[in-house]
Design a protein around this nucleic acid. Structure first.
Lengths: 152, 152
DNA sequence: GGCTGATAGTTAGCTTTGCTAACTAACAAC
DNA sequence: GTTGTTAGTTAGCAAAGCTAACTATCAGCC
């Protein structure tokens, strides 16, 4: 990986390029690892992530959901279909604007989310728990920055 | 997202569960964003990542490449085919063991990697550059931890 | 030498999840 | 009431992940 080599072409350690590059690499591998935990729960990462928005964000439109998840509307539309088929969410037509579909979580969706989330991050959480207190603090301090870089 | 709500079911802020959960969410959104930059360069993230291993790791077998990228062998085999079709890598049969295939970068591959990497992380690097010095330090301090959590 | 089992890759086929383009339905405005 | 805009859906494509099944080669062992 880019972050693991010591080429003379590598950006200066600590430079914006270096940080960006290593962050990218770390994010790729972190997610590859977590995907396996997702599989174990029977609900894929995109579904779980969308379900999470619905559960915590209340009834929400397809468009807003797509924006929140940073995917296109057709992608989200299909994702909602599969979530509905699985009985995890429900489509509710908007009362005043009949073009709009509001998506809300079912009880099964809420239950699964909480169980699924727990399982999904369990392996990662265990490793986080294994860090020293200062390390954990360092990680915690970086999280708002990551969220900001992720584009929120 | 899980990290944005204030449910009573949410793990304690700063707990291992909380850190793990928010990290997961941030990683998902960070990569979604970067994928667009990848598209602009004409080389997808998995290809660029594999190419990176080949360029910096020297001639490497398909199996080792798959292990390094944390994917199964058939997935990597196909990825190498597309990289070879694009003229970015070359298959070289091993001299002593004719079952193994060594993959090495072409000059075009090396050139593209350096150009592509630069473009790919450019948007992210720009945002990183916009952080304050202490923020950048906080991010830098967290990177080794992320790399560790990403697994080995 | 010649079986037998292990190992490296490939091929085939399926699934999920992205995308764009083109469509329908409903609303808003004039 | 026509015209343009907006919300979602449908259709069709590509990338990238997986497993299962296959080929080819190698290593051991009698």
């Amino acid at each position: 990986m880019p972050s693991r080599q010591a080429s003379t072409r590598a950006p200066r350690a600590g430079s914006a390029d270096d940080v960006a590059d290593r962050l990218h690499s770390a994010a790729i591998h972190l997610l590859r690892r977590l995907r396996r935990e997702d599989d174990a729960s029977g609900v894929s990462a995109p579904r779980l992530s969308a379900l999470s928005v619905v559960v915590f964000g209340g009834p929400v439109t397809i468009g807003d959901l797509a924006a929140a998840e940073q995917v296109r509307v057709p992608t989200m539309s299909r994702l909602v279909v599969t979530l509905e088929e699985a009985g995890l969410v429900q489509r509710v037509p908007d009362a005043t604007d009949r073009r709009v579909v509001r998506v809300e979580a079912t009880e099964a969706g809420r239950t699964l989310l909480h169980a699924g989330r727990r399982r999904r991050v369990a392996a990662l959480a265990a490793d986080v728990g294994r860090l020293s207190a200062p390390q954990r603090r360092a990680l915690l301090a970086a999280i708002p920055l990551l969220e900001r870089l992720a584009g929120r």
